[in-house]
């Protein structure tokens, strides 16, 4: 299995694969430039002359180590506003760790995180949703003993009030209730409004997770395997939902996904991670045919079997 962690190699791979598509060339240069300058001075913005400060979300030389293991290895991402970017890679490639580092659940060992042209590396995790960065979780992370409505309502309330407010003298019931109901209807859970979250089906729980992420009024939405464990029908519906949300709300979406069909059909571009490092970035059809990607991804898959 070829392990490509060096930027020049990435460029080589992409340029080779790109050939016809100029857009990929630009991306690769962007990534490379940002990464090189990133190592020189960590406070460089993750953009090049081509997309100055336009990136909705980006990372520069982002690295996260757990002891000896490097889970995220010098990753530089530039996701322009309005793009639906899929992050794929074999198990253990560091996709979720990348998400955790971007959202602030983990602090990076090195490198920086950028949101809408501002560096947010040192911004506490709880502040980031208020800056427009939201996420859904891989597992079904919910307020399990609460109703569907309350799960979303509490997030709407938090979005309206900020990270902390000593709001003691009124009933919370009506606060953010309309908006919450609207979002629940949007993800197709209107019938389950009063159900306790733990009693929902797996697919509905995932959808509730998306509604909660949307309740933060995000500009950038990070979705961690939104279709995992779903039936083919439910997967297709969820893919449609994501596409619909992304288009109507003009969101930038970063998506971790294992279902190849979903990835190929809805993403604008794909970033392939392997062993923590970016192997390739490009439009679906190009990434699909990239031999290095196939090697890394399928090689990783085969190892797992």
């Amino acid at each position: 299995m070829v392990r490509v962690s060096d930027d020049s190699d990435t460029e080589g791979v992409d340029a080779e694969a790109a050939g016809t598509d100029a857009a990929i060339g630009t991306t690769t240069t962007t990534g490379t430039e940002a990464a090189t300058s990133g190592t020189a001075a960590s406070a460089t913005r993750p953009t090049s002359d081509d997309s100055p400060r336009e990136a909705a979300v980006g990372t520069v030389g982002l690295t996260r180590k757990f002891g000896e293991i490097t889970a995220v290895d010098d990753v530089s991402l530039t996701v322009p506003r309005g793009e639906l970017r899929a992050v794929i890679g074999p198990n253990g490639a560091g996709k979720t760790t990348l998400f955790n580092t971007v959202t602030g659940a983990l602090s990076p060992t090195a490198g920086s995180v950028w949101l809408a042209g501002e560096e947010i590396t040192d911004v506490p995790q709880a502040r980031r949703p208020h800056l427009g960065l939201a996420r859904s979780f891989q597992g079904n992370e919910l307020f399990t003993d609460r109703t569907v409505l309350e799960n979303v309502r509490i997030v709407v309330q938090t979005t309206q009030q900020g990270p902390f407010r000593l709001d003691l003298f009124r009933d919370a019931g009506p606060v953010g209730r309309e908006r919450a109901t609207e979002l629940i209807e949007r993800v197709g859970l209107a019938a389950e409004l009063d159900s306790v979250a733990r009693n929902l089906s797996h697919g509905d729980q995932r959808r509730l997770g998306i509604a909660m992420a949307l309740a933060t009024d995000p500009d950038v939405l990070l979705l961690d395997e939104p279709t995992s464990g779903m039936s083919p029908g439910a997967t297709a519906r969820t893919a449609d939902l994501i596409e619909d949300i992304q288009e109507t709300l003009g969101l930038t979406v970063l998506l971790i996904e294992h279902d190849v069909e979903v990835v190929l059909s809805i993403s604008d571009r794909i970033t392939v991670l392997d062993r923590g490092a970016v192997v390739a970035t490009g439009p679906p059809e190009v990434v699909r045919d990239d031999p290095a990607v196939q090697d890394a991804y399928l090689g990783g898959m085969r190892e797992n079997e």
Binding site: T103, A105, P124, Q125, A126, R127, R128, P129, H130, A134, R135, F137, E141, L142, F143, T144, D145, R146, I154, V155, T158, T159, G162, P163, F164, M212, A215, T216
Partner: peptide
């Protein structure tokens, strides 16, 4: 109480 990590991820300064 229900899920501290989730609350923080949703913007609650726990």
């Amino acid at each position: 109480r229900e899920n501290e990590a989730l609350a923080r991820a949703m913007g609650v300064d726990t």
